[in-house]
Amino acid sequence: MNRHGDEIVQTTSEQWRDAVAAALAEGFSWFDSLIGIDEVGRPSGGDEEVRVVVRLVRHDPEGDPQGRQLHVRIPRELDQARLDSIGDLVAGAAWYERETHDMFGVSFTGGDDRPLLWHLDTPRHPLRKDELLAARLETPWPGAKDPDDDTAQASRRRTLPPGVPDPQLLDDPSVTPAELVASLGRARSRRARR
């Protein structure tokens, strides 16, 4: 269970299609979403993985709807980031598979990997965390200014904007995605909400 009351089922790439079929057979027949999560740099570990999540809902005429999420972790390497398609089990899932392929570089065997949202000659996968945000690299960041610049108190530490990696790593061909992501500027941790 997560905090939204969804049941979370961890599965494997071998069992993933069967797990979806089983959920459908149990009445979780309303397809909510299918999307990836790039695990690189997350505290849970798994720098080499992409997680794919599908959420299915069972609408109970008597009570509240119940959600079930199937999570599967697959290698991040583009030629191994592959799952069986569920497009033939769930009408409409093919669109989400195409989107997940566009955004995360996950291929779906037996499915349709044609670009849906992202039409480029050279495929890039913009929701992978090591995908560089060119506009962020080129645009001057207003937060780089420091009102103390003209005084002795000027901070020695330069802050990087969130999502922009350490510029020194950009020219280094041996840098790994995990190292690049670890160097990204971070947002301040949020204050506790009232």
């Binding site: 645009t139 207003p142 937060g143 200014k145 009102p147 003209d150 005084t151 904007p161 947002a187 301040r188």
Partner: peptide
């Protein structure tokens, strides 16, 4: 106080502050 926190937290980079000490 020109602390720059809003400028740095803004996801769209739409805030600017000019300040001196």
């Amino acid at each position: 106080t020109s602390c720059m926190i809003c400028v740095r937290e803004c996801p769209t980079w739409c805030i600017t502050i000019e300040a001196h000490s």
